[in-house]
């Protein structure tokens, strides 16, 4: 690992579901370093040489860092809102850059082509204008006023609707999606993507949700999200270059890619470059 990785070393990352730790612990990797997540009170995360890493348990997951995080894990206020179902989806391993996984999550334009007849459908392929900003106070990327037609926006949806979206990137490998709640118009369902960078080209993706949905069985909710992420995986594992380019190089970003551009700018500003390609090739 190079010194240029330092800003990302000091971030929090998900490394396990707190509720599903086996008695012997979960042996895994974080940014190329072997670690073990050990059950108990408190849960511990131990790196090579027996070094105890900082631990926080939030949103159903165990979070740790190889460095020294300068602030607490980002807040998702909806996690504590009464009436929501908190759904731990599990883990999907993807052979791609952790930054690519987040960028794909932010990309609406792929819905009709990858999640056909579920999150999008032809001929409704156009992404309308929306707002993107880097909020200085929170130091987060936000995309708002995003609208997209979806044949089946959620497991609980019974027909096609125009879905409102907001995207938030509070950490380099985490994103929070707010979308129209079919059961409670006026409220937002929360779907997150927490990404554990195993290496620069391999990651474990831990989706998690906070929904207003009292009816759909949990297994159906989990299967629905896993199906979406498995569809994404086949695309992600074939992207070239494998690292996320911060210089557009041969790629031609357009206005529909505004969120991706803002995300890459934010990564570049903070030197969050683990999993990124710095110079176009």
């Amino acid at each position: 690992m190079t010194t240029s990785s330092q800003p990302m070393i000091d971030q929090w990352y998900p490394v396990a579901l707190a509720s599903q730790l086996p008695p012997e612990g979960r042996a895994t990797q974080l940014m190329g370093a072997p670690i073990v997540v050990l059950p108990g009170e408190p849960i511990r995360v131990v790196a090579g040489g027996g070094r105890d890493l900082p631990v926080t348990v939030r949103y159903g997951h165990v979070w740790t860092s190889l460095g020294e995080p300068s602030k607490e894990l980002f807040d998702i206020p909806e996690a504590d809102q009464p009436g929501r179902r908190l759904v731990e989806v599990g883990v999907v391993r993807v052979r791609c850059s952790p930054l690519r996984a987040v960028e794909n999550f932010l990309d609406i334009a792929h819905f009709p082509f990858v999640h056909t007849d579920i999150l999008g459908a032809e001929p409704h392929t156009e992404v309308g204008k929306y707002d993107v900003e880097i909020r200085e106070e929170e130091d987060e990327v936000w995309a708002t006023k995003v609208q997209f037609y979806q044949p089946q926006a959620a497991k609980s949806a019974t027909g096609g609707i125009t879905t409102d979206y907001m995207y938030r990137v509070p950490a380099p490998t985490s994103s929070v999606l707010y979308k129209t709640c079919p059961a409670r118009p006026g409220d937002w369902d929360v779907i997150t993507l927490f990404v554990q960078p195993l290496t620069e080209e391999l990651c474990d993706v831990w989706p998690w949700m906070a929904l207003f949905d009292d009816e759909t069985p949990t297994t159906d909710l989990i299967h629905f999200q896993q199906m979406i992420f498995l569809q994404d995986r086949s695309i992600l594992e074939n992207q070239i270059p494998r690292l996320l380019p911060l210089d557009p190089g041969r790629e031609i970003p357009t206005r529909a890619d505004l969120t991706s551009v803002a995300y890459r700018r934010w990564l570049k500003r903070h030197l969050f470059t683990y999993g990124a390609q710095l110079v176009a090739q």
Binding site: P253, T254, D257, V261, R265, K268, L278, V279, A280
Partner: peptide
Amino acid sequence: ADLIDAMEMGCLLGPIDVWI
């Protein structure tokens, strides 16, 4: 016009040693 939009998007990123 659409390609001038794309030029703006590309320039917002720019090369790694430049901050726009």
